[in-house]
């Protein structure tokens, strides 16, 4: 079980978090049809690092994007997302 450093709460057990999706599978609002289909059904799924959206569901409830290596599980970057992170 990974230890994930929540940007709000600090390092917590993976069991507190829920995986949402990879960043490349985000369907933007008002996506063109082809763009939406590509995001949903043709993902990069790299054997290496990928950006993933997770939520600290059983903690603060905040959303975050982490860069995680799909083989080693090493997390190289984590940032919060949401209204409070806007400039």
């Amino acid at each position: 079980m990974l230890t994930i450093a929540c940007p709000h709460c600090g390092p917590r057990a993976q069991a507190e978090f829920v995986y949402e999706r990879t960043v490349d599978s985000v369907v933007p609002l008002d996506a063109e049809p082809a763009e939406a289909v590509a995001a949903l059904f043709t993902r990069a799924n790299p054997r290496g690092e990928d950006d993933e959206i997770w939520r600290h569901t059983h903690g603060c409830g905040g959303w975050l994007v982490m860069r995680r290596h799909r083989v080693t599980h090493a997390i190289s970057a984590i940032r919060a997302i949401g209204p409070e992170t806007l400039p």
Binding site: V18, E20, L29, W63, G82, P83
Partner: peptide
């Protein structure tokens, strides 16, 4: 609740 939170935080943070 998760869906709404995702849309609000990730797709519409400026709303």
């Amino acid at each position: 609740a998760t869906h709404i939170s995702y849309v609000r935080n990730h797709l519409m943070p400026e709303a």
